[in-house]
Computed example of a mutant assay.
Amino acid sequence: MEDSQRMVRRHYREKKELQARIQSMKNSVPKSDRKRRKQLLLDVARLKAEMEQKHQQELEKFQESFPDDSNLDSVTEDLAKMDLENQPPRLAKAQRRRERRAAAEGARLERIAEVEAERQAGFRHDDEEEKLSAILEARNLEMKEIPADGHCMYRAIQDQLVFSVTVESLRRRTANYLRKHVDDFLPFFSYSETGDAYSRDSFLSYCDDIVHSALWGGQLELRALSHVLQTPIEVIQAYSPVLVIGEEYAKKPLTLVYLRYSCSLGEHYNSVKPLEAGAVGGAAPRLF
């Protein structure tokens, strides 16, 4: 029975942690940003579904391990009734005191980690800008800032093209290419939270989101775009060599800059432009 109680308490703790994470996600997206709020609702629904599936699988495994446990029905009932608003099963006072002390210590260590993370983030922010500025200056280039609105990768590609094309068209053509080449791309898609591979239906749903939302693009979408445009795409990074995608094409590469730390909203892509006269030694633009 102790194992079952531990499982119940852990499931409750994991649900409360997910609740806090969801609230943090909601707070980070302005209510006025309808596209990102729509994507947020999809992400929240997926996270909840993944946790429910995980807990159900653990319960079924527990049932298989203890088929004759006379207390199993009550454990199953506890798990079935539990949601983000319920309280966990009653614990002994000594156990509650131990958990409160552990929670307080955990909060203290977490705050220390947050302070250190903030310090490191500030250092990485400045260091990344300096490295990128030096790399671009050596190529007689400078960064051209692209809005951090979820479309940044597509807008950066749009800025690099010599012909007129809309972001909506780039998204649609990317999604169509991915759909037509499912077997080539599906093995590389997985959920970042769990590492579980996408199903075919999940992959096709992801393609729909590319078209109908401000879903951020990454290396796999760039791979699709290089084929769509039949043009190589190079991505300049501060801490890794230049990444070239679509080397099989002979055209002049489109050039993007990838920022990991310098944008407060997270990972970001900018475009580039020729270095302006008198701008040598200037710092890369700050993103807020």
Rank of each mutant, 00 (worst) to 15 (best):
C263E: 08
V235R: 03
K61L: 10
T255K: 09
A121R: 11
D196L: 06
Y177C: 05
K252R: 11
L186Q: 07
S164V: 09
R172F: 03
Q160W: 03
Q95H: 11
K35V: 00
E129W: 02
S32V: 05
D208N: 15
P147C: 11
A277E: 03
R6C: 10
A80I: 00
S169L: 09
Y191S: 13
A80H: 06
D201Q: 13
F62K: 14
R223H: 07
G281L: 04
E2Q: 11
P89E: 06
F163Y: 15
Q19D: 09
E64L: 12
I135L: 14
I22D: 02
L59V: 13
D73Y: 00
A283Y: 01
I112L: 12
D127A: 12
E168M: 00
H151R: 13
I157M: 09
F62N: 07
D159K: 15
E50Y: 03
E247Y: 00
P88T: 05
E145K: 15
R171A: 07
S192P: 01
P147A: 14
E60K: 13
P285F: 12
R286S: 15
K61A: 15
A103T: 08
S192W: 10
K251C: 01
R179Y: 00
R124M: 13
F189R: 11
P241Q: 06
G122W: 07
G266M: 11
V242L: 05
A224P: 02
I236Q: 13
S24A: 15
D68T: 12
E267G: 06
A49E: 10
S74W: 07
K273V: 14
A156G: 04
N270C: 12
L259N: 08
R286K: 15
E118V: 10
L186W: 01
H151G: 03
R6A: 14
L84A: 11
I245C: 02
E85H: 14
K61I: 01
P253G: 12
D183Y: 05
H212Q: 04
L136P: 07
L59K: 15
R179N: 06
R9S: 11
Y206M: 10
R223G: 05
I210G: 08
L275C: 05
C263P: 01
D209M: 00
K16S: 06
L222F: 03
V75Y: 08
I22T: 01
V257E: 10
R111V: 13
A277C: 01
K48H: 08
V29D: 03
L109F: 04
G246A: 06
A45M: 09
L91W: 02
Y239P: 02
P253Y: 11
D159T: 08
Y258R: 11
N140V: 02
V115I: 11
G150F: 04
Q56M: 05
T166N: 06
A103F: 13
D201R: 14
E116P: 00
R10W: 01
A104F: 05
V235H: 02
I245T: 02
I146E: 12
G218T: 04
L41Q: 13
D68F: 06
R179D: 04
G106I: 03
T255H: 03
R223W: 04
V115N: 04
D149E: 05
H181M: 00
R223P: 04
Y249R: 00
V182I: 15
M25P: 01
E129M: 12
R97K: 15
R13T: 11
D73H: 02
L265I: 07
K54P: 03
V211Y: 10
E116T: 12
